[in-house]
Design a protein around this nucleic acid. Sequence first.
DNA 1: CGAGTGCATGGGG
DNA 2: GCCCCATGCACTC
Length: 953
Amino acid sequence: MSSSSSTTATATATVTNNNSNNTSCCSSSSTVLSRKCFNSDCTDFKSRKGWRLRSGDFAELCDRCASAHEEGRFCETFHLNASGWRGCESCGKHESSQYNFPPQRIHCGCIVSLQAFTLLDAGGIACMACARNFFVMTSNPAWPPLFYHSPFPERLKDLSAKSWNQLAGSGPVPWRQAPSLFNSSATQSELQPRMPYEVDRLSAGERFSAPSLEKRNLEDFSERLINGSPRNHLWDIVENGNAGITGDEQPQLLSSLREDISAQQFGITIPYASPSESKGQIEGSVNPVQPAPLPLFAKRFHGTLHKGVDSSVDGQTRNGRPRIDARGKSQLLPRYWPRFTDEELQQISGNSNSVIKPLFEKMLSASDAGRIGRLVLPKKCAEAYFPPISQPEGLPLRVQDSKGKEWIFQFRFWPNNNSRMYVLEGVTPCIQNMQLQAGDTVTFSRLEPEGKLVMGFRKASLTSLSDQDNETSQTGDGVSANGDADLGPSPWSKVDKSGYIAKEVLEAKSSIKKRKSSTLGSKSKRLRIENEDMIELKLTWEEAQGLLRPAPDHVPSIVVIEGFEFEEYELVVPLDYSYSSLYGNLVDAPVLGKPTIFAMDDVGHKIQWVQCEDCLKWRKLPLNVLLPSKWTCSSNTWDSERSSCSVAQELTSEQLENLLPSCNLDSIYVYLNGISCSKCDDSQLFICTRCHVCESIVTSKRLKAAKKDIDNVEALGGLDTLANLAILGEDEALLASSQATTKHPRHRPGCSCIVCIQPPSGKGPKHKQTCTCNVCQTVKRRFKTLMMKREKKQSEKEAETTRKQQESSAEKLLDDDPSPSSNAGSASGSPNKKKAVSEGSDDDPNRMKSSASPFKGQIDLNIKPEREDELSPGSDSGGTKRMLQGASERYLRMQRFLSSDGDSIPASNHTVSRGGADEKVSSAVILGGSHQDAGENHPSAFSLIASASTPAT
DNA sequence: CGAGTGCATGGGG
DNA sequence: GCCCCATGCACTC
């Protein structure tokens, strides 16, 4: 800072009151209106700038006062006897400290000395010199970030202590703010920040430098800084009211410490270490919304980081997310850690200059998003960030949404198992206003200094994406090695504007496995996908795609049409008509290759296990073997000793049991045909192996039926697999659309099912038309076949398609229930089925629309089903007719099929266990849902299936 | 009878 | 085994 030219004209007043007991070194008003020195104890005329005010302006001082300030003598000069003087915990903890004579004293109750010390996690303070030598420092948490705003809104200028108190406490969380931390006698005017350079001066001027300290003591000190030892941990301090800060300091301190100190102590920044330093590190990190350098946002790493601090700080640095209360966070489950994006923060803050403090977030459960209007709050979050309530009735809580609209919720609790269960009541309007549903995330943050609670939200579809992005950036080296804020283009490699740099990233990086297995909440698991998993899943999906092949015993014939070779599969009649809904055709379903289970052998090599079709024994195979869909022991060329069904299997039943139910596969291979689930103790199909839960897709009855016809079983296998995979999509879609239930746990981003493994269309990497990856090739091949089949069949059937039934049946299909089982009087008349199918009735129109998509005969590998019609606005022309035709066609096919095999009808229902109530959902429903709700997450392959399911023109 | 309310239950961490 | 919390459920309005 440059000082103005010295004024001498009237500088006659002397600086007095050296021993003044006046604690107010400044005028009570932070707005300097007169020409008098800002120092109320001085009568000189102002001529130079002093410390920085909360308004962003500078206290204008006379020459002498300014000099005193610059020399770090201001407090000593003007209010030496004021209360609030403290000794540095390190160099001046005790006046008789062996390290310090005389002890470093810091007038911590005065804003002038704000930058001269930092609050210690363990309680007490440390002078900047010590602090800077031992750890990366932050701004004093005791002071709200507003101190660093410049310019500060006019309305917040000229705050008296009272008004500040009111302001800080006027929000929904008045119990939190502690504007006057140190001394009740400290007036607001004392809480004026100094200019950054003054800090340095002060620090530099400190008489006792760290090197003078013995190493061991340095480490001890650092340890204390980090761990709060030997003093009470901060939370202990808060809880026990013993912070090493005595007397009247405690009451004020406690309320603030509870969150603020703990929150920021080690997100440490040296505020304005120097103008040059600050420039690069601070300004660069300032959010555009923030007009002025915000020290809070800056973080600075010293080469001499204590190892104890290292991880913490590094973690903060590496994190692409806002930092939250380090202590508070440690109290919270990771799933509640706020993961605000810059955009979200900006949205919340709007145009205000307020600083957003992310508090926590929560993914809405079905209950939360339901009509009950009760949002269950994580206990620790509620207790940490919401006002303490002693009565179950609680308190009304005013919450502002990101649009500035205010909502009032009842914050209350229920006694629950000697504990409490906190809820926000009356959230329905807000939830609805935000159009939130189960799986979406609500975020809670607080505007500083207003103290307003702000409720934001994040849609589930974005959550996973952003999470993935974050994970990517996190696991990447988003932060320079020296720990300085990465000022690169990635918003998340910067310090966010709130100044919080979540430190969990490092933790996340260093313990991904751990988090995945233990610390991650179930909810988080649902929506989070680790970067590693993405790669893994992609690979395995491609591998799985490579397994797609014609149904067994049906050699594809090659047809050349217009120069293109098409594989034409022989007819395979699936047991489940509903599969035809997926394919739009009954007959051309390829199947997956023989499902296998990957495991490790005794020596740690990856192997796979396959089950013989005939004897059901499990055989060990090399890792990279791909099997045809039908495989028996006789085909075991890798282990001649076990190439016969008569040979016992290697696995003991126990080993097998361990192998099967664990579902810990690294692929999406499916279990088929009668593997018993350890959880439901029923014959099930295991599908997505990351789901870790069996999917009750196929009942034992169905399996029996399937086994009746071994030819069909094989087809069923592949079809089931795809259908099951699709069902997952529908599962989610239904759930999402209903808003009554949460997303199915299996259908989370960590899931490797067909729905989950590919990025939402339009958001992930796209496959080019020329892409020759397994996925694309398979999809193309299948698409061609489907198109061929369709055209062929259409031409054949169009003539004979009964016009009689066309109108009635088509209408019936469209309006109500395309279920042939009910129409055919089949035995499958599950009451749920009607419901399911009626829910799925929406599907057909969409599917039909998609059939009119522009890519006639050409596959869009990245097509997004729900957008197909968007892409082809004119696609509706003739669409209705085709829709009717297609519907009637399918209807007739189904009828024909059902009349020939009534037993298969039960198989047409997929029993999806959900919340204890089984719900039978036909694949047709699934498809519909995929178009509507889950479409965003749908993979190209599935899109293809959908789009190819209807006649193309 | 449906919506709202308060508590209980049980799965999962 | 404890705690959290999603959800069930009985009860009331």
